[in-house]
């Protein structure tokens, strides 16, 4: 079947075709879903190498789940978010149990001291780094909720399903997460290009 004929197919349809042996479906699913898994993993772990391991593991689980997939029971993207999130949390817990930090917070640069260079506006990339650093410092569940809501654009009910909590709990976590982010970023307000006026 030509590749472009499949491009409009849903994730569930592609997964069915994958299970039936269509290599085109394998390619399309890889290109469609891997970026999503990697993006979430990078934001939760703040480490590209670790995130690649998690994304690869999550995708492997998807391939293995394909033959028995029941489209009426789960949305493929929600399932993949859930698996990726759980794998990230496992890593964070493992590292914490070993006495280290899931993300080596000590290795993350401290916010720059306000000084002569403080009025130099950071580039967009630097602002992204500041946000990633501030996200990494959030409590785990707040980081998950804020990432899924504001960076992945998921709805509160979807996040509730992924995190296995109530919608109200999601609202509370995202609100607290945003408040903590604002506090963390306040010290770098000038660096981020925002004036106090």
């Amino acid at each position: 079947m030509p590749l472009d004929a499949l491009e409009d197919a849903s994730d569930a349809e592609l997964l069915r075709l994958y299970a039936e042996g269509a290599p085109e479906a394998a390619r399309l699913l890889t290109r469609r879903l891997t970026p999503m898994a990697l993006r979430v993993a990078v934001r939760l772990l703040n480490d590209m190498a670790e995130a690649e391991d998690v994304a690869q593991d999550a995708m492997l689980r998807l391939w293995k789940a394909a033959p028995g997939w029941r489209a009426d029971e789960a949305k493929v993207s929600t399932w993949l978010y859930t698996v990726t999130r759980n794998l990230c949390m496992d890593r964070i817990r493992r590292v914490k149990t070993r006495g280290g930090a899931a993300v080596d917070i000590d290795a993350i640069a401290e916010p720059a001291d306000p000084g002569p260079a403080a009025d130099v506006r950071l580039t967009e990339a630097a602002r992204n780094t500041a946000l990633a650093d501030a996200l990494a410092d959030l409590p785990d569940r707040q980081r998950e909720a804020v990432t899924l809501r504001h960076l992945e654009g998921l709805s509160n009910p979807e996040i509730a399903e992924i995190m296995d909590i109530s919608t109200e709990a999601v609202e509370s976590l995202t609100a607290r997460g945003k408040r903590n982010l604002a506090t963390a970023l306040a010290a770098r307000r000038n660096d981020l290009g925002y004036s106090d006026e």
């Binding site: 994958y18 269509a22 890889t30 290109r31």
Partner: peptide, 17 residues
Amino acid sequence: FLARIEAQSLAEQPMQV
């Protein structure tokens, strides 16, 4: 990385046409 995932997906495919 995408090529690695794609290779993995093809290797895991239950039957291939």
